[in-house]
């Protein structure tokens, strides 16, 4: 059974330990601006919402890539960017309707969550279990999947 990140905004306190863990794992420094998971704070409502790629089946980013730089990791199901192949054209960044693949101007490549090869640093770092890494059919990703389906332009559902 593949696992997925499960996010429960109700448990998030907005501490950003996840962002630090993610950025350290990927960039070698504590640098929330480079994190692939972002916590959105809604101050007026007292809400904190961690948000990252759901590794959606539609894989908009992968489909949009003109040079085959994004592929599926067979072990984790993650859609993974190959730095060697990415030319930095950024088409994926506008194609992903979730905004979860982004351009890093320092490297000239795009970055996205790759599930840390099956051991996501954000989930490990989360002190409140707002982010957990659990069996995919437990994650309740239906809400996001519903959004994905709505964005579908008709061609993807059955291919």
């Amino acid at each position: 059974m593949q696992k997925s990140l499960h996010i429960d905004p109700g448990k998030c306190t907005g501490c950003l330990q996840c962002e630090m863990a993610c950025s350290y794992d990927n960039e070698g420094a504590f640098n929330p601006s480079k994190s692939r998971i972002k916590v959105f704070a809604f101050h007026d409502e007292g809400r904190f919402v961690p948000y990252t790629c759901t590794q959606c089946d539609e894989a908009w980013c992968m489909q949009a890539c003109p040079v085959d730089a994004i592929s599926v990791d067979a072990a984790t199901g993650a859609k993974v960017v190959s730095d060697a192949r990415c030319v930095g054209c950024k088409v994926c960044t506008i194609a992903c309707p979730f905004g979860t693949i982004n351009y890093n101007a320092d490297t000239g490549k795009v970055v996205k969550c790759d599930l840390c090869e099956g051991d996501p640093a954000c989930a490990t770092a989360c002190p409140t279990d707002a982010i957990t890494f659990i069996d995919a059919n437990w994650t309740g990703l239906e809400r996001m999947r519903a959004w994905a389906a709505k964005t579908d332009s008709g061609a993807q559902a059955s291919a």
């Binding site: 950025s23 960039e27 070698g28 420094a29 504590f30 640098n31 601006s33 480079k34």
Partner: peptide
């Protein structure tokens, strides 16, 4: 706005 990172 800081994006340089902190190292230990």
């Amino acid at each position: 706005r800081g994006t340089k990172g902190v190292k230990v």
